[in-house]
Amino acid sequence: MPETASPPSPLPYTDTKPVGAADFYTAVNATFRFIEKEFGNEGLKRYWTELGRGYYAPVTQRWREGGLPAVAAHWKAFFAAEPEAEVVVTEHANEVVLEVWRCPAIRYLREHGREILPCFCQHCSFVSSAMGEGAGVETRIRGGNGSCEQRFAKTGHFDQPQRLEDIATAS
């Protein structure tokens, strides 16, 4: 029987294992803490923004070419590869909505007794905004510290800007 080729992944980077190693969440958290210590909170925000624009540039390209369906496909594949994530991704007419019932990073860090950087959840806003800006996609996040709602839409769709006060302090 001939082999069937796998469909191309919606993710720009792929691995041979289906799910990432959860221990790495401790390094993500520690990296944020180190950069905030060295460069301050504004420096940490710059790091997130430059990571979104630089390392994740292939995501921007896919969103620019594929629009909101590509945004939805990205997050479905992304959270399928994050260990023990519970996330519902829904594509509406003008928005893609992520209902994060269980954030895999916060879950792991808590279960392993790690001190979570208080502004940890803000990284989602800064990284996603940076990934989306070159694709005409904006994001709004509400909640955090284990569960949140993330909305993605074409630039100009949202009435209000993102307020960092709407993103919970992590603990």
């Binding site: 959860a22 590869a81 994050e82």
Partner: peptide, 14 residues
């Protein structure tokens, strides 16, 4: 979100 499925990629970038 910064995930860990591609951790080694953004680790190296960092």
């Amino acid at each position: 979100m910064i995930g860990i499925y591609d951790f080694c990629g953004h680790y190296e970038w960092t």
